Amino acid sequence: MDLTVIAYIVYLLVSVGLTVWVARTLSRNGRVFLADVLHGNEKLADAVNHLLVVGFYLVNLGFVALHLSQDDPVADARQLFEALSVKLGVVLLVLGVLHLANVYVLNRIRRRGTLDREQRPPVAPQGYIPPAGGWSAPTART
Rank of each mutant, 00 (worst) to 15 (best):
V32R: 03
G134C: 04
V48I: 14
T19I: 12
G40F: 10
G96F: 13
Y128E: 08
R120A: 15
T4A: 10
L34F: 02
E42H: 08
A132S: 05
I6G: 02
H39R: 10
K43Q: 11
G113F: 07
G30N: 05
V16S: 09
G96C: 07
L34A: 08
R108I: 09
Q79W: 05
E82M: 10
L18C: 10
R111W: 07
A132C: 06
Y57S: 04
R24L: 08
V97T: 14
R111M: 14
G133W: 01
R24C: 01
H39T: 04
N49F: 00
S85G: 14
D46H: 07
L58W: 02
V5E: 13
I9G: 03
L68C: 07
L26M: 12
L38C: 09
H39M: 11
G127W: 04
V103W: 00
L100Q: 13
G30E: 01
V64L: 06
G40V: 09
P130M: 00
S136H: 13
L58Q: 03
R24G: 01
F33G: 02
I129G: 05
A45Y: 08
H99D: 03
L13Q: 06
D71V: 12
A65Q: 04
V86Y: 02
W135M: 14
H39C: 08
I129W: 13
W21Y: 13
R24F: 03
G55C: 06
P122T: 05
Y11E: 12
R110M: 09
A83S: 15
A124S: 15
V14E: 03
E42F: 00
N41L: 03
Q70E: 12
L51N: 06
S15I: 00
F63T: 02
G134Y: 03
V90N: 10
Y57F: 15
H67A: 13
G113M: 12
F63C: 01
G134W: 04
G113K: 03
H99K: 01
D116N: 13
V94Q: 05
R31Y: 06
L95S: 01
R111S: 14
V94D: 07
V103K: 00
V90Y: 03
G113Q: 14
R112N: 11
S15Q: 06
V91H: 08
Y57V: 03
L66N: 11
G96K: 06
V59G: 01
T19D: 08
Y11T: 11
S15A: 15
P130S: 04
S15T: 02
Y11I: 06
L44I: 11
A35V: 07
H50K: 12
L52F: 02
Y11R: 04
L52A: 10
R110Y: 02
Q126K: 14
E118F: 12
P122W: 07
